[in-house]
């Protein structure tokens, strides 16, 4: 077995942690814990980006690591916790149907993602190419999470987790997107969360609940 350098081992470890966290989010029912998991995912992402930056000497990756740390570990979880506190839904549970089935679908998706990543990983010449499959799997698992949830706030978390996966994919395939794109996406995410925060209040005021079931009546032709 060829010797794997230390940084590559660390990155692989962090990639595995990311995947594990994605599965944890898929099965977590409490919203507050979901936010903790999301923050942990952000921290793992920031750490891995920093390690890639250190290993390859790509200066701009330090920027994106710092951005990830600030935005996804500190700012967004703080905003979301405050929202939950003000909406007074700290103790709400989500009635998830059939967690085992969801997990099974998740495993199928991971296999598919690894399969998908093989040709791309061969093209990429980065030290991190082996983690591309995990990154894609994270994106798909987060998507799956958005589909299975019924509450607005957990869907937002799914959306944010998907962005994490995307970020990881970009780092592992091409050492990150151009700085402009990264900044743009970061801003989009921040603004998106702020707007959604406003919408939470609106939805609750109108419908007395944050479940999306009520919104299904709002089609104008019904």
């Amino acid at each position: 077995m060829p010797a794997v350098p230390l940084y590559a081992q660390l990155i692989n470890l962090l990639a595995a942690v990311l995947l594990l966290l994605a599965f944890a989010m898929l099965s977590q029912r409490r919203v507050l814990s979901l936010i903790d998991l999301f923050a942990a995912q952000g921290a793992a992402l920031a750490l891995s980006t920093a390690i890639v930056a250190w290993a390859t000497g790509q200066r701009h990756l330090y920027w994106s690591a710092g951005l990830t740390l600030g935005l996804k570990v500190l700012v967004l979880p703080w905003i979301l916790r405050r929202l939950i506190h003000r909406l007074d839904i700290e103790w709400e549970f989500e009635r998830l149907i059939n967690i085992p089935t969801t997990m099974l679908i998740g495993i199928v998706l991971v296999v598919f993602a690894f399969n998908l990543a093989v040709p791309i990983a061969e093209l990429a010449n980065t030290v991190t190419r082996s983690t591309l499959g995990i990154a894609l799997a994270c994106v798909m698992l987060s998507f799956l999470m958005m589909i299975t949830r019924r509450k607005a706030i957990s869907q937002v978390l799914g959306f944010l987790a998907m962005e994490n996966g995307l970020f990881f994919a970009a780092t592992s395939a091409t050492y990150g997107m151009p700085m402009v794109v990264e900044l743009g996406i970061a801003l989009d995410v921040l603004v998106g969360v702020l707007i959604l925060g406003v919408f939470f209040f609106q939805i609750r005021d109108r419908l007395d609940s944050l479940g999306f079931a009520n919104l299904e009546r709002s089609r104008d032709d019904d």
């Binding site: 598919f112 998908l116 798909m140 998507f143 799956l144 958005m146 589909i147 299975t148 949830r149 019924r150 869907q155 999306f212 919104l215 299904e216 009546r217 709002s218 089609r219 019904d222």
Partner: peptide, 20 residues
């Protein structure tokens, strides 16, 4: 247009998977 968010998400997810 069904007005159900999970349906939309599932639709786009399926599209993504098929395309990929």
């Amino acid at each position: 247009q069904h007005g159900r968010i999970s349906a939309y998400l599932a639709l786009s997810f399926a599209t993504l998977i098929v395309l990929l």
